[in-house]
């Protein structure tokens, strides 16, 4: 109960600040809408179905790209972390391409794959790949060699070591990477929808700017926050389900 009060204190403070600035600060609603009109805009977005439709479109793109990219990232990361051959083979290529900001590739992807969903999904997949492959490689390389020795001494073959030791042992690192990747998938999504969208939450923001409708813009930002928060919570939940042995294992008291 006390903890819940602590958690909600800061958001309430922000809300109060926002309210008093918009109410008493003589700031144009073209710069800062007040909380009531933002809530009204949000309700209108919900009632018209615009919010649901655009959230669905955005979710489809970001999850499609996330699943594709992170699957390839985890699979190849395990391979690269496990074998020196593949590590040397991929090292330069991965680290070079990784250094290019993925948003800088948006124009290229649009030229290659058009203005539809495929360019957006592929760009999100591309960035998701790099955000999962690195932590996966590190996670696999950091697996305690004693676990591998133990499994090998009991007669496990390389495939069994991979599936029954390397994968579970590296899973915490992989999951930490996946959690970050979900967030970055949303970043790339919104960017690419702003640049080249005719639907989606990023497009709503762009449209609101064109219409000078700041209340809609704030309502959409709020919806994006809720979406990102829910996706992160879902990942955390999934992590707890898949790694029950890590329950209650923290450093703090």
């Amino acid at each position: 109960m006390k903890q819940a009060a602590y958690k909600i204190a800061l958001p309430l403070l922000f809300l109060a600040l926002w309210y008093s600035i918009s109410r008493f600060g003589h700031i144009s609603p073209l710069i800062l809408p007040d909380p009531e009109s933002t809530v009204r805009a949000l309700i209108s977005l919900i009632q018209s179905g615009d919010l649901a439709l655009n959230t669905y479109v955005s979710l489809k793109r970001s999850m499609g790209g996330f699943l594709l990219g992170s699957f390839l990232g985890v699979a190849s990361g395990i391979l690269i972390g496990w074998s020196h051959f593949w590590e040397d083979f991929f090292d330069l290529a991965i680290n070079f391409v990784r250094a290019i900001p993925k948003t800088a590739l948006a124009p290229l992807f649009i030229v290659w794959f058009g203005l539809g969903d495929s360019a957006k999904i592929l760009l999100i997949a591309f960035s998701s790949y790099f955000f999962t492959v690195i932590p996966t490689i590190e996670g696999v390389k950091n697996v305690d060699s004693l676990y591998v020795k133990t499994a090998r001494s009991m007669g496990a073959n390389e495939f069994q070591i991979m599936t029954s030791v390397i994968m579970p042992a590296a899973m915490p690192a992989i999951f930490a990477g996946l959690r970050l990747t979900v967030t970055t998938a949303l970043i790339v999504l919104v960017m690419v929808e702003i640049v080249a969208g005719n639907d989606g939450l990023g497009y709503l923001l762009q449209e609101a700017r064109g219409n000078l409708d700041m209340a809609i813009m704030f309502a959409t930002l709020f919806a994006l926050g809720v979406l990102g928060y829910c996706l992160d919570a879902a990942m955390q939940y999934l992590g707890k389900k898949l790694m029950p042995w890590r329950k209650g294992k923290t450093l703090s008291m």
Partner: peptide, 14 residues
């Protein structure tokens, strides 16, 4: 030929 190490090396996920 079974080996047991000083650090136990139990699999923490099992």
């Amino acid at each position: 030929r079974a080996i047991v190490f000083q650090q136990y090396a139990l699999f923490p996920w099992l």
